[in-house]
Structure formats: structure tokens, C-alpha cells
Amino acid sequence: TGYYDVLGVKPDASDNELKKAYRKMALKFHPDKNPDGAEQFKQISQAYEVLSDEKKRQIYDQ
């Protein structure tokens, strides 16, 4: 599964769309709200870390 799929956004998503999707998913799977969501929360955080950084995103998109 790709990072875009993890966040539920298209590859041409804007920074604002990425942030909005990340916040929505992070709230849904945060371990405090969803004890079984810890692994998914890590994936969401990693996806956002890469896609929100312009240089990392360019490398990922290659």
C-alpha cells in the first residue's frame, strides 16, 4: 500500500489536503482512542512525514 492510499488522498493532493487527511486519520487511529490502531497510526504518521516534506515527496514519487 502506498503512502497516498494510507492517507486516502490522490497523488496530486495539495499540502492542505494532505494535512486535513492526516489529521482525520490520526484522530481515528490514535492509540488513545483506538487501542488496536497503534500500527496503523504509525503508518499514517510515516506517510505524512514523507508526503508533507517536499524533498522526501519528490524522491518518493520517482
Rank of each mutant, 00 (worst) to 15 (best):
T1G: 12
T1W: 15
T1P: 14
G2R: 12
G2D: 14
G2L: 12
G2F: 15
Y3W: 10
Y3S: 01
Y3L: 12
Y3E: 02
Y3D: 00
Y4L: 03
Y4S: 01
Y4G: 01
D5A: 14
D5K: 11
D5Y: 08
V6E: 02
V6F: 05
V6N: 01
L7Y: 00
L7D: 02
G8K: 07
G8Q: 06
G8S: 02
V9D: 01
V9R: 00
K10A: 10
K10Q: 08
K10T: 10
P11L: 06
P11V: 07
P11H: 06
P11D: 04
P11R: 10
D12M: 02
D12C: 15
A13E: 00
A13T: 07
A13F: 06
S14W: 02
S14Y: 02
S14L: 05
S14G: 07
S14D: 12
D15N: 13
N16C: 15
N16E: 15
N16M: 15
E17P: 00
L18N: 01
L18E: 00
L18K: 00
K19Q: 14
K19E: 14
K20F: 08
K20G: 07
K20C: 13
A21H: 03
A21L: 00
Y22Q: 03
Y22D: 04
Y22I: 05
Y22E: 02
Y22G: 00
Y22A: 01
R23H: 14
R23S: 12
R23C: 15
R23K: 14
K24R: 11
K24M: 12
K24L: 13
K24G: 10
K24I: 13
K24A: 12
M25S: 06
M25A: 10
M25K: 09
M25F: 06
M25L: 15
A26V: 14
A26L: 15
A26W: 15
L27N: 13
L27Y: 09
L27G: 08
K28H: 09
K28W: 07
K28L: 13
F29Q: 04
F29G: 01
F29D: 01
H30L: 07
H30T: 06
H30P: 02
H30V: 01
H30F: 05
H30A: 10
P31S: 06
P31A: 08
P31N: 10
D32V: 08
D32H: 06
D32R: 11
K33H: 14
N34G: 06
N34I: 05
N34R: 06
N34F: 07
P35E: 05
P35I: 05
P35S: 06
P35N: 05
P35F: 03
D36R: 08
D36Q: 12
D36N: 13
G37S: 10
G37K: 13
G37A: 12
G37C: 13
A38V: 08
A38E: 10
A38W: 13
E39F: 08
E39D: 13
E39H: 08
E39M: 08
E39K: 09
Q40F: 14
Q40M: 15
F41C: 06
F41H: 05
F41N: 01
F41K: 01
F41Y: 12
F41R: 03
F41Q: 02
K42F: 10
K42L: 14
Q43I: 15
Q43W: 12
Q43G: 03
Q43R: 14
I44T: 02
S45H: 11
S45K: 14
S45G: 04
S45Q: 15
Q46V: 14
Q46N: 08
A47G: 01
A47K: 02
A47L: 01
Y48Q: 01
Y48H: 01
Y48S: 02
Y48V: 01
Y48C: 05
E49S: 11
E49R: 12
E49C: 14
V50A: 09
V50D: 03
V50T: 11
L51P: 04
L51M: 02
S52F: 05
S52T: 08
S52A: 09
D53R: 06
D53S: 08
D53W: 04
D53N: 09
D53Q: 06
E54Q: 12
E54F: 13
E54S: 14
K55S: 10
K56R: 12
R57H: 04
R57I: 03
Q58P: 06
Q58S: 10
I59F: 09
I59S: 11
Y60H: 04
Y60L: 03
Y60C: 04
D61V: 03
D61Y: 05
Q62E: 10
Q62R: 11
Q62F: 10
